[in-house]
Simulated scan of single mutants.
Amino acid sequence: MDLTRRATALGCAAAAVGGVALAVQSRVNGELGRALGDGVAAALVSFLGGLLILAAAVVATASGRAAAGRFRVAVRGGRLRVWQCLGGAAGASFVAAQGTTAAGLGIAVFTVATVAGQVVSSLFVDRAGFGPGEPRRITAPRAVGAGLTVVAVLVSVSDRFGSPGELWPALLPALAGAALSWAQAANGLVRHESGSVVLATLVNFSVGACALVLVGVVDVALRGLPNPPPGQWHLYTGGALGVVALSTSVYAVRAIGVLVLGLCAVAGQLVGAVLLDVSAGGIAAGTVAGVALTLVAAGVAAVPGGRARVRG
């Protein structure tokens, strides 16, 4: 196996592992949001937990401190613009969506809605060449795959069409997924300049935590304090799961691009999501069909033509 194929295979495997972590994080943060009665508070707890883990890793290692120095030089020298470091704000919106809607929608529906927004958005992010890799054309397989994914969302929530009040929350994870594709590209740029997956992940978590603190202040002013913290320890593992999910995407995005990154993560997300929903008491037939169609869409978009690069 040559180096390019090996890098691609490793990137796809990392993205799949990150997808599994993301599905489990959705369940954890959704339950925490329900227990606290506040999705924003649950998101903030998750981000602060991940931030502590990453800050300790950077401060405690020589490679982490060196990466922080390279990051400062890149920002001061203009190679990395400040707005290119704000991927954490999009990540914060995704985690907030987890805490607000995941428990009510079910993890599988939440995941498919997120994937739809992420895949469609990633077509344009890849085409613009925003991330650290080269631009990639919007070819027929990539466009068809993205379109099938949108259809999959409609199928997965078809059992809710009779109740619009239950359907609209699926829009929030779809929008958060769209923002997440841009964030993955931005985090890849930070990793490229700093030379460190951990540092890039720390920057993301720092920005996201700051955004959530500001939103949390407004949330408390409008709604009051959340419920007392629950006693179940596993509800506080969202931060660690987020570190796994984000660091794998930061590692993989340069080798495989934003769209293929999202598609490889789909397999992990959906397998984990379906198993979680089944263990919680069952899953609707429409959701199973939507999951299956999403996997087909991922395969269509990932055919060789979907990796075509823009030249000139």
Rank of each mutant, 00 (worst) to 15 (best):
I107P: 01
V190G: 09
G99S: 06
E134T: 13
F161S: 07
G162D: 11
V215M: 11
T149Q: 14
S122H: 04
A128Q: 07
L180R: 14
R142L: 12
V157L: 12
P141L: 00
L180C: 10
P135Y: 11
A211N: 06
E166V: 15
S121P: 01
V190I: 11
V198F: 06
D126Q: 13
L105C: 06
A143P: 01
V190L: 10
A200F: 02
S181Y: 07
A113G: 02
A174N: 03
A146D: 10
V119L: 03
S156C: 10
R136Q: 07
T100R: 02
G117W: 00
W182I: 04
V115P: 05
T100C: 05
L189R: 15
S121V: 04
L171H: 12
G208Y: 02
L199Q: 13
V144L: 15
S158V: 03
F110D: 03
V198W: 10
R191F: 08
T101V: 05
I138W: 06
A96I: 10
Q184C: 12
A179V: 08
T101R: 06
L214N: 03
S122F: 11
S196L: 13
A102H: 03
T149N: 07
P132I: 03
V203F: 06
V207R: 01
D159M: 14
V144S: 08
G99V: 01
N204K: 04
G104Y: 14
L172R: 06
A178I: 02
V125H: 03
T201R: 05
G129P: 13
G99I: 08
N204L: 13
F124T: 05
V144N: 09
F205E: 11
G177I: 03
